[in-house]
């Protein structure tokens, strides 16, 4: 089950204006509050934040909406958060603010391809790409696919699972929304 949140709708509701640009820190904070309200009422394990129709996303809003949403969920977070509908410049803004906080999130780009934005270790990034490429698989199979020792792969996958960037079900890992 996926809770889809259209950021453009929230922006217009929050500001009571026909704005298409997500700019300024207070606007970002207000939109984040609305997202948190929506999520607090939802039982869906995955939240999909859809940025389609948004034009400018400045660094202040990227920080207030995405980074602070993740920071607010650090303790006891149990929901996957995935972004969709981002243009290159918006992805860069989010990438910068998440890297600053050593956080990461999954974005769906180019018609369904999952992409990690923000900071993860080099091993975790390779492991994520491997899970996306191979589909759901165990640590042993994924380690063999990259020619790694299994403990190295398990460590990378555990880090991804801890940050809710992949889903682990039993011995099987799969990309959070792509499964």
């Amino acid at each position: 089950m996926i809770e889809t949140i259209r950021i453009g709708h929230l922006l217009r509701e929050t500001t009571a204006s026909p704005y298409r640009n997500l700019v300024t820190r207070p606007t970002g904070a207000a939109v984040r509050n609305r997202i948190e309200e929506t999520l607090s009422r939802s039982d869906c394990p995955t939240a999909l934040l859809d940025f389609s129709g948004i034009e400018v996303l400045d660094f202040s809003c990227a920080e207030e909406i995405v980074a602070k949403l993740l920071l607010g969920q650090v303790s006891g977070r149990s929901r996957f958060v995935v972004l969709r509908g981002l243009r290159d410049d918006q992805r860069e803004a989010i990438e910068q603010v998440l890297t600053h906080h050593r956080l990461a999130i999954v974005a769906i780009v180019h018609g369904g391809e999952p992409l990690l934005l923000g900071w993860v270790s080099a091993d975790a990034r390779q492991a994520f790409a491997c899970v996306c490429r191979t589909g759901p698989a165990g640590a042993g199979d994924l380690a063999r696919a990259l020619g790694w020792p299994e403990p190295r792969m398990r460590e990378a996958l555990d880090a991804l699972a801890l940050h809710l960037l992949v889903r682990s079900e039993g011995d099987c890992y799969h990309a959070s929304l792509v499964a």
Partner: peptide, 15 residues
Amino acid sequence: NATMRFSMALSEACQ
């Protein structure tokens, strides 16, 4: 897409 980055810079400078 430079247009959007230009507007981002404008927004941050004004803020």
